[in-house]
């Protein structure tokens, strides 16, 4: 009788050990199956930084490049456009860029490293539509000083991508990580090393 008791104890231990080791195996087997579903190497490559030459951009000109499959806008703002930013605070929902929609170095009055060069992710923070660049004053309404307008649901952003009050978009447009390689070259997708 006593020998059978020992046997049952041993069996219980063995079956618990087997279950535990088997569970480790199942988790191990899940690793390749789940990693397979993550973006492939090609997607990782497209996540790499993009170099943009801005030497030939004129004042007020806007240009779009692709980074991680998203449109990135680069705008060379004129002095007038930069000045227009200061008068709008009362109409904006987050004039000081308190919500983290930008790297630390772009959390300033211009939301950019250099006042004249604006870099934004061109995706509306409401539902992901692509807003359009509308620099001409009065083109959207009488008081429009120039900015970005999303025709999907009527969201309005100023010349620094800050969102107006009373529109569907909840936050300012996102600023991607970027830095200047030199005077005329921007690297989008990477902070300065």
């Amino acid at each position: 009788m006593s020998s059978e008791d020992v046997d049952l104890k041993k069996r219980k231990f063995l079956s618990q050990a087997t279950t535990a080791i088997g569970a480790v195996g199942v988790c191990g087997a899940a690793v390749p199956l789940i990693s397979y579903l993550t973006p492939g190497r090609e997607a990782q490559m497209s996540a790499k930084a993009v170099e943009v030459d801005i030497a030939d951009m004129k004042e007020g000109e806007q240009r779009t490049v692709v980074w991680r499959g998203k449109p990135i806008w680069i705008v060379r703002r004129s002095v007038a456009q930069v000045d227009s930013l200061k008068k709008l605070d009362a109409q904006l929902s987050d004039p000081n860029s308190a919500i983290e929609q930008q790297p630390g170095y772009a959390q300033n009055a211009y939301r950019s490293i250099r006042p004249d060069i604006l870099v934004l992710v061109g995706v509306c923070t409401h539902l992901g539509c692509a807003p359009t660049y509308r620099p001409e004053p009065q083109s959207i309404d009488e008081t429009w000083p120039g900015g970005f307008f999303c025709s999907c649901h009527g969201s309005k952003f100023d010349m620094a991508g800050r969102v107006y009050k009373g529109v569907p978009a909840p936050t300012n447009l996102e600023v991607p990580p970027y830095h200047f390689l030199n005077e005329d070259t921007i690297v989008v997708g990477k902070d300065r090393a």
Binding site: D7, K10, R11, L14, S15, A17, T18, I21, G22, V24, G25, G28
Partner: peptide, 16 residues
């Protein structure tokens, strides 16, 4: 890993 698992599973099977 499979060899370790085999050790325990085989012992359990023998016990039954």
């Amino acid at each position: 890993y499979l060899l370790i698992l085999l050790f325990f599973v085989a012992r359990l099977s023998m016990s039954y």
